[in-house]
Simulated assay, not measured.
Amino acid sequence: TFTNLVLYTIVALSFVQTSLDLNCVNDYEKEMTCHMTPDNTNDFPQYNMFEHIYSSACECKFQVNGFVVGETFKANLLRKGNVLFTKYIKTRESIKPKRPIIISISLTENGNFRITWDTKYTHGTVFYESLSVELTYSVKGSTHNVSTDPMKVDQTNYEFVGRNLQPNSNYIVWARVVTNYNDIYSDYSEPYEFSTCKFLNI
């Protein structure tokens, strides 16, 4: 089935269109986000539905009444009532899971660090079961990051082995998730900081 998604814009007469790059992703819950990169960054203020988010792109968000894996959206980008171009967006191929959060990091009795997280999706649903979680950590200030293998979402926590970490150090850990519907990862969670003891072997 097709669902129309019309991206309305109001552009000044001075705007000269040569090419646009429109990329849309959905969180498979209720929101679709579209990023647009025009050739001329001076055109950003002339859009009434796109927000300038960084130096070369802008975005807009749409609320959708649920997504269906086999659904395709037809996105029309309009300028002064005229269609600039049309893009077809397949739900399954454009899923980008929501950004997870790290809930806590606690020291266990055996000296490990247990990390728990929240994917922000409802437990027990088919989509929830399709998710995997990846953790990335490093010593604060270091450029050397270590990532775990993706873990199935029903594994609700993970332990960093204390003796494998540097003693008396500050660590930062991030989480991100991916669905087996495609290979698009979510954005990383906010970094969560924890500190190791002076003597990890005790």
Rank of each mutant, 00 (worst) to 15 (best):
R79A: 14
I89E: 10
F85D: 10
K80V: 13
N65G: 02
K80E: 15
Q63V: 05
K87R: 13
Q63G: 08
F73W: 08
V83H: 01
E59R: 12
N82E: 03
K74G: 00
V64P: 02
E71M: 01
Q63C: 03
V64K: 10
K87D: 09
I89D: 03
G81H: 12
F73A: 06
L84K: 10
G81V: 08
A57W: 12
Y88S: 02
L84S: 05
V68F: 00
V69L: 05
G70Y: 07
K61S: 12
T86V: 09
L84D: 09
K61I: 12
K74S: 00
G81A: 11
F67Q: 02
E59C: 00
C58A: 15
F85A: 07
G70D: 08
N82S: 03
E71C: 02
N76W: 04
L77K: 00
N82A: 08
K80W: 14
T86N: 06
E59M: 11
S56Q: 13
F85T: 11
G66V: 00
V83T: 07
E59F: 02
T72K: 06
L84Y: 14
T91M: 06
F67N: 04
C58D: 14
A57F: 10
L78F: 12
F62V: 02
V83G: 01
L77C: 01
F62A: 10
F62G: 01
S56R: 13
F85C: 06
C58R: 14
F73R: 03
V83N: 07
I89R: 10
K87Y: 04
F62M: 09
T86I: 04
Y88H: 05
E71Q: 08
A57C: 10
R79Q: 13
V68H: 00
K61P: 04
F85V: 07
Y88K: 09
T91K: 08
G66F: 06
Y88G: 03
K90V: 11
A75Y: 05
K87L: 08
V83F: 08
F73C: 00
F67K: 03
T86Q: 08
N65A: 11
F85N: 10
G81R: 15
V69E: 05
F73L: 01
V64F: 07
V69Q: 02
C58T: 13
K87E: 13
F73N: 08
K90G: 13
F67E: 06
L77V: 14
N82Q: 09
L84C: 09
L84V: 12
T72L: 01
A57I: 11
L77P: 07
S56P: 04
G81D: 11
K74D: 06
K61A: 13
L84R: 07
T86L: 01
G66A: 07
V68R: 05
G66Q: 04
K90N: 14
K61E: 11
T91P: 02
T91S: 04
I89T: 10
G70H: 05
G70Q: 04
C60H: 13
I89H: 11
K90M: 11
G70E: 05
L84P: 05
C60Y: 14
N65Q: 12
C58W: 15
K90Y: 10
N82F: 02
L84G: 03
Y88C: 03
L77W: 11
S56E: 14
T72N: 05
F62D: 05
C58N: 15
T86C: 00
Y88N: 04
K74Q: 07
Y88T: 05
C60E: 15
L78G: 02
C58Y: 15
K90C: 06
N76T: 01
V68I: 01
R79K: 15
Q63M: 09
G81M: 12
C60A: 14
G66P: 01
